[in-house]
Each structure stands twice: as structure tokens, then as C-alpha cells.
Simulated assay, not measured.
Amino acid sequence: MTAITDTNESTIVVEQASGSMPRHHLVIFALLLLLSLAAPFFLYPVFLMKVMCFALFACALNLLLGFGGLLSFGHAAFFGSAAYVSAHAARVWGLTPEVAIILGTLSAAVLGAVIGLLAIRRQGIYFAMVTLAFAQMVYFAALQAPFTGGEDGIQNVPRGDLFGAISMRSDFSLYFVVLVITFGGLLAIYRIIHSPFGQVLKAIRENEPRAISLGYRVNSYKLTVFVLSATFAGLAGATKAIVFQLASLTDVYWTMSGEVVLMVLLGGMGTVFGPLVGAAVIVTMQNYLASFGAWVTIIQGCIFVISVMLFREGIVGVIAKWIRKPL
């Protein structure tokens, strides 16, 4: 199958939606897997799990922003709501961690479908503002609902036993479960991007009127990618709730939406591996610069300004430009 995109010269280019992965992408995925397998022997597993959760969250937003061309300022709604559902299912209902994560992910998918049906009717900054408005509604619900714990959140969430047999109480054993979830999500997003569906998304991003004239049901594609992005964001949030045994208002607050946008832009919007780098940089700064207190935000801002001035396409985007290969 093929998809049509628009070039700068407004000519039609036909791109093959190849089912095979480029060799350099295979090498990068293999190196990432090897580094991930070795990392917990040298670094704190909880820190690494936080990086992986936010990397998946950033990749989820990048699917919508980088490849669908839709800027969402409300993705914390899906991340945080899934965290609350997962935490509640594990702590109150006593469900096993895999079931709790699945329920949290499904709740984010349903919420994404509801918000997406209304949000895709707008474009540009209006779309972004609608998503932000809905996210604030979700935040208010999380603040007022009796089962969310209000400002205290849901604490002491039990990690439980995976499939009722494998104990998740050890950070080391939980790390490899999170690794499987993260890599599974990344590979799924990669497949979506490089599928015929992904090629149509790029066509809509480049020239929506042209895509409409060619007969594509643009709103259906937008809604689908919005729901998919919300689902992966929910998977990241639900997993994070089990890892940290906590779901709080921070997960659903608007600053979380801004933070993940920063990760995508810093790493490289529209690249496969950019959000991973962006998430790793931001989480590392938050972790190792925590002693600076409120100055962490200022330092992050300075680094972001420098990155925007020196790396207009993001860190990975610039590297891809240097080596002349898509990353």
C-alpha cells in the first residue's frame, strides 16, 4: 500500500509503506535493549524505570504531534487518569499488577475517544486549547472525586504478584517487567508510524486539504491516532503508578503536559528515537539536580533555550541530519 505526501514544491510523492525495519534502526534497537539489560546492574532501577515510563509517554505524544501534526496540551489527562485507575484497582480492588495496568490503559483509551471526538473538530492552537481545557476538567475531577484521595492521592499501592506468581516487590524484578512493557510499546508505535496508516498520517500533517481531495477520511485518521496516543500515554501512567506505588495530582496537572511536550521537542519531534533522548535528559536533570530546588526549572529553561537555538530539529533530529539517515 502507498500513501501520498506533499513536498515543498507542492508535487505529489508516493512513499512505500515498507514492512521491513532499516538496518540502522535494528542496530539502535538492539543497542538500546543491551544497554537496558545491563543498566540495572550499574544504576538505580527505580530511576531507570522512571526514565522508561516517561520515554513511553513522550513517544505517545510524538505519535500525535510529530506524525499526526496535532499539538496536545492535555496529555496529562490520559497519563494521570490511567495512573489513578491502575492504583485504585491494585490497592482497593486487590487486582494483580498486569490487570491493574490493563484497566488503567483501557480507561485512558476510552477517555481519549471521548475527548478526541470533540477536540478533532478544531485545528491548530484551538485544538491545543480544547485538549488543555479537558485536561483541567480531569484534574478538577481527580481533586474532588472521593476515590482519588484528593491532594494526598492514592498512596501505598501494592505492586503485588505478576500473574499471581511472580513477586513484583523487588525493584530488580519489576525493572524487567517495565522494560518489556516499554519496549513493547515502542515497537508498537514504530510499527504504527511505518504502516500505511502512518504514511497517511504524514500526508495529512503535510497537506490536509490535499489529503481530503484524495478521498481520505481525515477526521477518522485524526481520531484514531488521538486514541492510540492516549492509550500509550495511559500505559505509561498506569505502569508508573505501580512502580512508584503512588498516583497523585502531579500526574494529571497541566505542567505534566508541558513537560512531555518539552521532552518531545528537545529530543526531536517527528523522529523515532528523539522522545527517548528527550525523556532521558529531562528525567536525569530532575533527578540529579534536585538539590538545586526551584533552580531546576530555571536550569531546564536555559537548556531548552540553548537547545532550540543550536538544535532546531532536536538532538536526534540534528544527528539524523548529519548522518543523512532518518532516526
Rank of each mutant, 00 (worst) to 15 (best):
L61H: 09
P209W: 11
V281Q: 02
G160C: 05
V318E: 14
M21E: 11
I28G: 08
P158G: 09
I181D: 01
S257N: 05
Y175V: 05
R191G: 09
L179S: 06
G185Y: 01
I319T: 13
F232D: 02
V316F: 03
F292I: 13
L37M: 13
P209E: 12
V252T: 07
M269C: 13
G237A: 07
I166L: 14
G164E: 03
Y216I: 03
Y221C: 03
L35M: 14
D251K: 07
L37R: 08
G270A: 11
T96D: 14
L289T: 10
V264G: 06
N62Q: 02
V177Q: 00
G116N: 04
K321P: 02
E98S: 04
F47Q: 04
F78Y: 15
Q136K: 08
R205Y: 08
G198I: 02
S195N: 12
E15R: 15
I101M: 11
F226S: 04
G150S: 00
L235W: 09
W295D: 08
A142Y: 05
L65T: 02
L34I: 15
A145F: 09
R23M: 13
G66T: 01
L111N: 00
A294V: 13
F140Q: 14
Y190T: 04
I204T: 06
H88T: 01
A141K: 00
N207W: 11
F47C: 08
S195D: 09
V51K: 08
A280P: 12
L37G: 05
M137L: 15
T96K: 02
I306V: 15
V243S: 08
P326Y: 04
V130W: 08
F54V: 03
F197D: 03
I303T: 13
P196H: 07
V46F: 09
V225C: 00
H25V: 12
G74K: 05
H25D: 13
R217D: 12
A188V: 13
T7Y: 04
M309S: 15
T5P: 01
T255M: 14
P40V: 00
I242Y: 07
V14Y: 14
F67Y: 15
G274R: 10
T271Q: 07
L310W: 13
L223P: 09
A38S: 14
S213F: 12
S173I: 10
T11N: 13
A82C: 12
V177T: 05
D251V: 04
L174C: 10
A230T: 03
G198P: 06
V252Y: 03
W93T: 03
T271E: 10
G124N: 05
V272F: 14
G150N: 03
I154S: 00
M256D: 00
F127Y: 11
H88W: 14
T224E: 07
A17Y: 10
